[in-house]
């Protein structure tokens, strides 16, 4: 709309990145806080007043925490609308320049879900190995033999370490009797 090299008095081209950036995803966070706050308050109303000797009914903390969460939700939504952008966490292996890799995230969550639902049926020795191998694959490792070997070694190793060393029985699942 305006050329950079126009008359010196002309306004500089507005930087779109500084003005109209609204981190819309942050509204989802605000909505989550609102839902959480509303549930905490609602849950507080469901609690009985308690005994007469109770000077601090169990609902008090629920009202305070839930109420503040609602306020924070509003504040976050307002801040977002005003162009507040979150400072995402940095790290040694983190590359923030290329955005979130949703596919990797989704696949990892799927791998973790497999473990949640199958651990008691198949047993840790199997689901643990699937977990490690699957996660390594999602993250880009393609050394199948090495990945599977490591996964099995870890899951069987920890199974015995927890059973013998710590006295915590992990589920044996279908390998019950074999392990």
């Amino acid at each position: 709309m305006s050329q950079q090299h126009a008359a010196p008095a002309a306004p500089p081209a507005p930087e779109p990145t500084r003005h109209r950036v609204v981190d819309t995803a942050q509204y989802a966070m605000a909505a989550f806080l609102a839902v959480a706050g509303a549930y905490v308050v609602y849950n507080g109303t469901q609690l009985r007043g308690g005994m007469s000797a109770d000077f601090l009914p169990p609902s008090t903390f629920a009202y305070v925490v839930g109420g503040v969460l609602l306020v924070l939700a509003v504040l976050l939504a307002v801040a977002t609308a005003r162009g507040d952008v979150a400072e995402a966490e940095e790290g040694e292996d983190v590359d923030l320049s290329s955005g979130t890799d949703v596919r990797t995230l989704g696949l990892l969550v799927a791998v973790l879900c497999v473990n949640v639902f199958l651990i008691e049926i198949l047993g840790w020795a199997i689901t643990g190995a699937i977990l490690f191998t699957g996660a390594a694959w999602v993250l880009g490792s393609r050394h199948w033999v090495r990945d599977i070997a490591l996964g099995v070694a870890l899951s069987v190793g920890t199974f015995y370490a927890f059973y013998v060393g710590l006295g915590v029985p992990l589920p044996a699942g279908i390998l019950n009797g074999v392990l």
């Binding site: 473990n115 840790w124 977990l131 490690f132 191998t133 996660a135 390594a136 694959w137 870890l154 992990l170």
Partner: peptide, 18 residues
């Protein structure tokens, strides 16, 4: 890195289950 983060997920799951 695949082994490092797969390992973290593995041990996180183990710790929480235990």
């Amino acid at each position: 890195r695949p082994y490092l983060y797969a390992g973290i997920l593995f041990f996180a799951t183990l710790g929480a289950y235990a």
